[in-house]
């Protein structure tokens, strides 16, 4: 089981709650995904502290852990304020920290991210920082008190999959004991499977499911992809090799010409 800040989570799939055609479809997608954690954008959906009540209730009724996020925050102060609002709304110390540095690419602001992570950690939050695959940035976030990292696969909403496999591998290898979630940029279950095969602890996605023609079916597809990838990782896959290696012994042939 995956563990984040001492909490064990049965499913390695985390699902966002934005952009679904309707709350009913959101609920079906969660049911079929078996996701254990739901992320919620407090800023975008709330429209005022209490007004989103019906939607918050719906999210709570999904019966999964809620990981509120600071999506859409472009400054440290905004992110910190939103985190406090989230803590009150959902009664959780967890916060997925997004500090957006570039409005167009939605790339994280590494400097603001580290600063906000430090402030929130000191304030008792358990921070899940949405970061790039940069190792130095990862290290700074850990120094700031984060015990989980959430590197992107690709920019938010692109569905491009893992665009820097080398970087992600390096990050994974540098901090083997830190739970890591590939967050953002996934479009297909095979990409989620790939992240899991590489040893990431979980994946988080939203658009790929919410914007699919049949979100519930896509949610299940991702659940299977995540499961397949995790099983492969745990099974210790064979090393790729250049030469063919017959799976049945070829008796009587010369060894290698």
């Amino acid at each position: 089981m995956a563990e984040f800040y001492g909490t064990e989570v049965a499913s390695r799939l985390m699902l966002g709650t934005a952009q679904y055609p309707s709350p009913a479809i959101l609920e079906q997608a969660f049911r079929r995904s078996g996701a254990g954690i739901a992320t919620v954008s407090v800023r975008r959906e709330a429209g005022g502290e209490r007004a989103g009540g019906a939607f918050w209730d719906l999210v709570r009724q999904l019966g999964v852990s809620v990981l509120p996020n600071t999506a859409g925050c472009h400054s440290v102060r905004e992110a910190v304020t939103t985190a406090h609002m989230a803590r009150e709304l959902f009664d959780t110390k967890w916060i997925k920290l997004e500090v957006i540095g570039h409005a167009d690419t939605l790339q994280p602001d590494p400097f603001g991210l580290v600063e906000a992570a430090r402030i929130l950690t000191e304030d008792g939050f358990e921070v899940f920082p949405y970061t790039t695959e940069d190792v130095v940035l990862g290290e700074r976030l850990l120094e700031a008190g984060c015990k989980v990292l959430m590197p992107w696969g690709a920019p938010i909403g692109t569905g491009l999959g893992l665009t820097n496999i080398y970087g992600l591998r390096t990050l994974r290898a540098q901090f083997p004991d830190i739970p890591m979630v590939v967050d953002a940029g996934l479009g297909l279950p095979s990409q989620a499977a790939m992240a899991m095969e590489m040893g990431f602890d979980a994946v988080l996605l939203n658009t790929a499911v919410a914007k699919a023609g049949d979100p519930a079916a896509m949610a299940e597809g991702f659940a299977l992809g995540v499961k397949a990838g995790r099983l492969a990782f745990e099974a210790d896959p064979m090393e790729p090799r250049d030469m063919a290696a017959p799976s049945t012994p070829l008796i009587g042939k010369a060894f290698l010409k």
Binding site: P23, R44, E45, G47, G48, A51, G52, A54, F55
Partner: peptide, 11 residues
Amino acid sequence: QIESGERNRAT
């Protein structure tokens, strides 16, 4: 289209 019952306050 925002999940909120708020009927005023355009942001």
